[in-house]
Amino acid sequence: MIEVKNLRKEFKQNRADAGLLRMLFGRVPSETVTALEDVTFNVEEGEFYSLLGRNGAGKTTTIKVICTLLLADSGTVTVGGHDVERESSSVRAMLGVSIRGERSVYWRLSGRQNLAYFGRLYDVKGAALRNRIEEIGEIVGLSERLDDYVERYSMGMKQRLAIGCALIHRPRVLLLDEPTIGLDAASARDFRDFISHELRARENVTILYTTHYMHEAEEMSDRIGIVNHGRIVAEGTPSKIIGMVPGNSVVTIDAKNAVNIDLSTLSALDSIERVHAESLDSGSSKIRIEAVVGTEVPVADVVHRLTSLGAEIGNLSVSRPTLEDAFLRLTAD
């Protein structure tokens, strides 16, 4: 549905370190910043794809190129087979976009007036528009407040209205740029539920989502692309991304009578990368078993071998790296 190939974008930025007189009358010095170095990815129809990246990584720039607000220096982007530069009008008709969330709606109008205005810009009118406004009000949970001025909405409500405006014309593709920024934990949770259950279930749209909140991406995405310094440095399902970093799965066991056990019997098991033991003051041992990257520690086999060698198992814990661990590793400078 969305195909992005070798996207590159540079910006010229004025520097702020010139003197007062130079800023008033002179030529302000500038520098070139590369926002997108070489971005390539695609999003399938009906898929939920998240772009994860640090601030300034290039997520919003990518979204802006896709939604025709920004022209790339090189590379191609198509949405539903339409080129964003040559067929921008067709692309815009297919897209629902929420950029800058609550700042993209008119605060001096009511929620209903905003929906009507943007609906009309997408050629939705008459009874169809009226019905759709009611429907959207229900989907975004604003039915009761549609006739209030937006300035009286909470930030979360404004965000939801912005998404409602993006959905008003039943777009096939939805681009959401950091929609949960500034929301409290509960509102963010409601918002994610709304996206995952209400929106995807009822509207069946393809979603391209940008965020720097790992748990959001992990919870909602079919696939994730990690952007760093204007490049996609990793891509795949959340579990695949997590599997890309070493120390995949770790089991820690507190065991009694294990001091004299030959740990090589554990190392010999499949999938085990490393085994390490240390004696504790209590006389028991703490055994740490790390799996080979991309695999899991065979916990049952480990326990079986240890008990068969006379060890008494106390506490056992299994830990896996999180998406955050993977992200930090993949985006480390």
Partner: peptide, 11 residues
């Protein structure tokens, strides 16, 4: 107010 971009997104 930030609404100009939103307007320019319409086809």
């Amino acid at each position: 107010t930030g609404t100009i971009e939103r307007n320019f997104l319409a086809p």
